[in-house]
Computed example of a mutant assay.
Amino acid sequence: MLERELHAMSAEGDVPAIQKLLAKGVSIDARDQSGRTALLVATHANQVEAAKVLIDAGADVNAKDAISDSPYLYAGARGHLEILRMTLVHGADLKSTNRYGGTALIPAAERGHVETVRALIEAGVDVDHVNNLNWTALLEAIVLGDGGPRHVAIVKLLVDAGADVNLADGEGVTPLQNARKHGFGDIEKILVAAGAR
């Protein structure tokens, strides 16, 4: 089956094979048993060239799999910056959300992907989006981050982008209270300077 082969070649990053399959008229957005398209498979493996060929051929950057991951959302969450940038240029739905109700910015902030966070902010993702856990990107960067240089840089990027520094979590705990609880002094300074309470 050509579609299965397309998925396999996308995982391996075999660009010539992908091009041959596309020339044969394979269905570019066909799904595997997990609901993944070839582009999502390539994104999982961070196969940049394969992703480029698929995107240029019209693959849907917003096609979600069975667990609500799309190439755009997954690239953002994993910090696959080159693929993320391609999805942004090719119509990524900035309002689309993952299975936790979060935008791509939230897991990117949590996982310390500084350049990914910067790219998503520049693209216009809502910095104050609240996910199903009642957390924003700012809260996740603090609560699930390690307080190190990458998370400090992300907090600064979010604050500079106008994130609401007083938007509390579901329990009413503010970003500043969370930063103090974890002993993240550098983050606390940024928040206080931005008027956090």
Rank of each mutant, 00 (worst) to 15 (best):
H90T: 10
A66C: 03
G76P: 08
E49C: 05
S10K: 11
K156F: 03
K95W: 09
R111L: 14
T97S: 10
Q47G: 02
E3V: 08
R78V: 12
T43R: 08
S34F: 13
A193H: 01
V15Q: 09
G13K: 09
E12D: 12
I187G: 03
D93P: 11
H44L: 01
A108H: 06
H129F: 10
K156C: 02
V165D: 07
E3L: 03
G195F: 13
A50E: 14
S27M: 14
L138R: 07
K20M: 05
D146V: 12
D146T: 04
A168K: 07
H80Y: 14
L22N: 14
Y100L: 05
E5C: 04
N98W: 02
K189P: 06
A51C: 03
R180D: 15
R118S: 13
V143I: 10
L94N: 08
D14L: 12
G13R: 12
Y100C: 04
A123L: 09
T103V: 05
A77I: 06
V125C: 03
A196E: 06
I55L: 06
N132K: 15
L40T: 06
A23D: 15
R4W: 00
K64E: 13
K64G: 08
L167N: 07
I67P: 00
N62V: 05
D29F: 05
T43F: 04
V48A: 14
L120F: 01
A63H: 10
M86E: 02
E115L: 04
G13T: 01
V15C: 03
G112C: 04
R36K: 13
G76N: 03
E82H: 01
A50W: 04
A59S: 12
A194C: 02
G13H: 01
G172L: 03
V192C: 06
V61C: 02
L138A: 09
A42H: 08
L40A: 08
L54C: 06
G162Y: 10
G148T: 09
N98F: 05
G101H: 15
H113D: 15
I142D: 00
R4T: 13
V125T: 14
Y100N: 14
L133G: 06
A38W: 06
G76D: 11
A77R: 07
K189M: 07
G172R: 05
A50S: 06
R99F: 13
T87G: 01
K52P: 06
G162L: 11
A11R: 08
V159S: 01
A92Y: 09
K189T: 01
Y74W: 14
R150Q: 15
K52N: 14
V143M: 14
L157W: 05
